[in-house]
Design a protein around this nucleic acid. Structure first.
Lengths: 211, 211
DNA sequence: CAAAATATAGTTGAAATCAACTATATAAAA
DNA sequence: TTTTATATAGTTGATTTCAACTATATTTTG
């Protein structure tokens, strides 16, 4: 059983290097790379692969959107999500949308091979992170997970850009009181204590990118 | 002329994948990998390579420290620094400490090959980023670049952990007024406007790591 | 349609940050 | 040994954030 695998990562070097690693796995026959979610979807539309491996933090279309679309349209295609950070809420949301495996970028190559074989044979690959996410879902209300509105994301972005509530209000042509409310909602939804927490979450969730 | 190359990156997958890519370059004969700066130094102590490629953000010993030590003890070894973010100040500091090339992780494989050949043949590889850093150095006082004290880094870390000045003071057994002063110094030295700016810079400079 | 979610705007008061200073003891560097 | 850098502590006042509310128009969803 030789597998076809497509992968997406905006860091060309990483995508390319990862492809080389995967090509070395004995059960793999073909690997194609894309630099964002949109390109990956385009590849899948042309010809279905056995497995797709996608980064979470990407421009144009992020990993979560990729999971949603592929699991809906091509439920037989296995999906492995890669991220920089091991964010439990994110894992939980990805699982709800049908991801088959979840790895942080600090994993080693053998774990990736194990994960690929596991998702193909058993339909899933459970590591510590996914186990934590399952436990988490039992204790915390799922509704509190990251479901920021477009406006909230916009405000969060401007907070990360070091603007004050007043400045953001001026920029968006609304009262600073309104922005205060959005900020409160962000603190609550993201489980942050202050601006430091908001910035960290924004980066973790891929809403804000540094430099 | 066949080259020996050592590389260091704390993400096992990336290090491994990068090694595979470099092994494919025609002028390269040998590649060894390390998972942090300390391991890389150990490798170099045993046998000098032609080129070392090191990530900036690493535990145990970061890229800047690697550059300082290698360029001092083994000036004939060429050094290529990789980072996630294109921070001009950082490039400038790395150049002052003797780095030969500087690439962000969004580069493509062919640029890496070009950079390797260039540092070996011409002792340097100049891309847009290094050019910007040179221009930057002409306009801005070098002294204002990142030279945080240990105490300031400690405070910055705790700010990123969402603690208030009062809480940090209690933790470090000093007055919150003292922490206020450290914070002011941080804002000034890092060119940040507020907490959001401090957190971003802390992540960029590798002082703070998310999750 | 009725209910829920979203975006808007406000009040009030406490807590925290921002900015610009002075000042002192100690440690490190010239 | 001066000088400089660092860590410490303080004052003062303005600005901003934090937290918990009420309220309302609009949009989305069941």
């Amino acid at each position: 059983m030789k597998l076809t695998i497509y992968l997406a990562d905006d860091h060309a070097m990483f995508a390319n290097a990862l492809a080389l690693t995967i090509e070395g796995f004995k059960d793999v026959s073909k690997v194609k790379t894309a630099s964002n979610g949109k390109e990956l979807i385009d590849l899948v539309e042309k010809k279905k692969p056995d497995v797709v491996i996608t980064d979470f933090e990407m421009p144009v279309m992020d990993g979560m959107e990729v999971i949603k679309r592929i699991s809906k349209k091509y439920p037989e295609v296995k999906i492995i999500l890669l991220t920089m950070y091991n964010n439990v809420q994110l894992v939980r949301e990805a699982m709800d949308h049908g991801v088959h495996a979840f790895l942080t970028k600090s994993f080693d190559p053998s774990e990736l091979e194990t994960a690929i074989i596991s998702v193909v044979e058993k339909d899933f690959y459970h590591n510590d992170l996914m186990y934590k996410a399952l436990k988490y879902s039992a204790s915390v209300n799922i509704k509190t997970s990251t479901s920021l509105t477009d406006r909230e994301k916009e405000v969060l972005h401007l907070i990360c850009d070091e603007l004050t509530m007043k400045e953001i209000g001026d920029k968006l042509f609304v009262s600073d009181k309104t922005i205060q409310n959005h900020r409160q909602a962000l603190l609550r939804k993201l489980g942050a204590k202050n601006t430091a927490g908001l910035v960290k979450k924004a980066i973790e969730e891929g809403i804000y990118k540094i430099s």
